[in-house]
Design a protein around this nucleic acid. Structure first.
Lengths: 224, 224
DNA sequence: ACAAAAGTGTTGAGAGTACACCCATGC
DNA sequence: GCATGGGTGTACTCTCAACACTTTTGT
């Protein structure tokens, strides 16, 4: 096949851009950075940067994620690669996009980002971002919904111990609809993925049972 | 964020590699090419090649697909990008993988490929391919099963008009299990995605109804 | 008449959905 | 005692799975 040599073609740049989601105050939020260089100077964009020559794609995404949020060991998954020749006016840039889910309690935005401003925004479908980042963001949101429906990624947005109503709330945020409390409890308990952790006493109402996720849960097929 | 310039970093090569599936004689087949250069000289690999500097990722995949099979306008979808620094001994090569589904009747393998040999193989989970192509192939197979379950991609493997038992057979091949004929018919007919095209008379048994896929079917949620 | 595949219904089990009231705590 | 969210059961519908015989054609 390859008479073609690795040196025959002009090479593109490759970046890893990350859609970092969190849920705070019952809103789905996404982390954006303000561009301080042309093109799109002053516009908001997804955090990201060039993949180093000796760094895997995942490592590049992890590095960018940690640079922006200070968090490690969070849920991170590759989404899709975007490579239209004209998507970046600076030249040929192929972007491998990632999605990260972080628990809002763990976030420590880099205190003073020397070159850029980073900020959490409420997610919406039209955020008017730089480059084709609206497209990437919407792709990520689709994937998020899918993953919520069929896997346990939702729990990466929650602390180690949580109540069922916390779980229900993040599902309601992501699907933008209400679920019946009784049916939700029944369904999620019947999956047998929770361990009871005792009741939380610091509330001025009936103290809720706290749960944690069991270890070694296989691939769950359907949550909702 | 980006003090980094597009020129600051050594750039990787980017290839598009394609997992081309077909079903023939009730077997799932994948198209492989024999490498005639080192590394992995003599080993079989997925068809693919470098993405040109002015070509989108999809276009690169389409070009490679047509070069190898002579087919156009078939089902093609991007899968995942693989970018471990050492995955290709020749240097840093990031591969954007694709999956194509072709109807075996339409295939015309390039009569004499000047530099390589291309051949259909029965799919198996351990084909011992060059590079990390076993990993890519298995990823593609997982995606294939998922797409069969939740979308109508299966029909890209069939001619325009088909019988229900042809549909059932390709599902049985992909999932490697038998389905009950009555339940299968009921389910697939109830989806209301078929148009009747009359009976096929050239058979020595009760002539089956031929169907075609309706146009403008939305995203089907669950086939099986 | 026989070989080959097409076509067709019913039943039982389990899952999903709709729906409303009492409970435990802090103040 | 009241405000707050926590916790629970039943009935109906719908979907899924299991299961076997008759029909139509060509030879």
């Amino acid at each position: 096949m390859e008479k073609e040599s690795i040196h025959d073609y002009e090479k593109p740049s490759v970046t890893a851009d990350i859609v970092i989601f969190t849920i705070e105050k019952e809103k789905l939020k996404v982390l954006l950075v303000k561009r301080d260089l042309n093109p799109y100077k002053g516009k908001w964009a997804l955090p990201g940067g060039f993949v180093r020559i000796n760094e895997s794609l995942d490592d590049a995404a992890k590095r960018e994620l940690e640079e922006e949020t200070g968090v490690k060991d969070v849920y991170l998954e590759q989404l899709y690669s975007f490579g239209e020749p004209k998507r970046d006016p600076r030249g040929r840039v192929i972007t491998v996009s990632y999605m990260a889910l972080v628990n809002s309690e763990k976030i420590a935005l880099r205190a003073s980002s020397d070159v850029s401003e980073a900020k959490w925004f409420n997610f919406s479908k039209e955020m008017n971002l730089a480059f084709d980042h609206d497209k990437i963001l919407n792709y990520a949101f689709q994937r998020l919904k899918w993953k919520f429906e069929y896997t346990t990624v939702a729990f990466s947005l929650l602390p180690k111990n949580f109540t069922i109503s916390q779980v229900q709330k993040i599902y309601e945020v992501v699907f933008n609809k209400k679920f019946d409390k009784r049916n939700f409890n029944k369904k999620i308990i019947s999956l047998n993925i929770f361990k009871e952790e005792g009741v939380n006493k610091n509330v001025s109402y009936r103290p809720p049972m706290m749960y944690s996720l069991k270890k070694n849960i296989g691939d769950i097929v359907s949550i909702i």
